[in-house]
């Protein structure tokens, strides 16, 4: 059974913080519901971008309902941030330890983030005025917490789409393009020191 923990998102429109909940283990139904909620909003936003001849976000085709079957396996876990009954962000994690690649933590267990996405109404790439900011930060915090809980020392790693590289470069070490990854995406890893800096400095 999933547990819920209060967290906060920045709500620029309201000029304040909004209370939200981190749901630490989502079900397949949760993912399908989130997809049904997000898909029409994403389509409308893509239509607007298309008409304005603006670039689309690289992950525009992600469909969380198609990732739901991953949750049949212990090897995957999905977390989300819910606010007012709607998912504001989703994160799929591999709970099978990946091997650390940073020199200081080479070979040590790292929690690998498979997918991380904010709801379409929170993405600057899709809407002019995002409803909530800080969703990615909250999800990274949750990944660090799970990494600690799993005995991985808070270490996390991921491959980033090019449009998100600048975001991850602020908090993690860029280890360059990974030839073993099917799309050759750049691999990012957070060291223990970076984790402490991140947790201390990135509260809303």
């Amino acid at each position: 059974m999933s547990a819920r923990r209060k967290c906060h998102l920045r709500a620029p429109g309201a000029g304040d913080l909004a209370e939200a909940e981190l749901v630490d283990e989502l079900s397949k139904d949760d993912l399908i519901r989130a997809h049904l909620d997000w898909a029409p909003v994403r389509l409308m936003a893509l239509k607007r971008l298309h008409e304005a001849k603006l670039p689309w976000p690289e992950h525009w085709h992600w469909d969380w309902s198609k990732k739901a079957d991953m949750l049949d396996l212990l090897a995957y876990r999905c977390m989300g941030i819910e606010q007012d009954g709607r998912m504001q962000g989703l994160m799929m994690l591999s709970t099978i330890a990946a091997k650390g690649r940073l020199k200081a933590q080479e070979g040590k267990a790292v929690l690998y983030i498979e997918f991380l996405e904010s709801a379409p109404w929170n993405l600057r790439a899709l809407v002019e005025a995002p409803k909530f900011l800080g969703v990615g930060i909250r999800l990274l915090e949750a990944a660090i917490a799970l990494s600690e809980e799993e005995g991985f020392g808070g270490r996390i790693g991921l491959h980033s789409l090019p449009q998100s590289e600048d975001f991850y470069r602020k908090y993690m070490t860029d280890l360059g393009p990974d030839s073993s990854q099917s799309q050759g995406l750049r691999y990012f890893e957070m060291s223990t020191e970076q984790m402490h800096n991140f947790l201390e400095g990135k509260k809303p």
Binding site: L73, L74, A75, T95, I96, A97, K108, A109, G151, F152
Partner: peptide, 22 residues
Amino acid sequence: QKDLSKTAVIRQALRLYQLLDN
């Protein structure tokens, strides 16, 4: 070697076993 608790190693083994089996 992995700097993990024994429980964590067993959990890892179970997750991997299920993934491979699947």
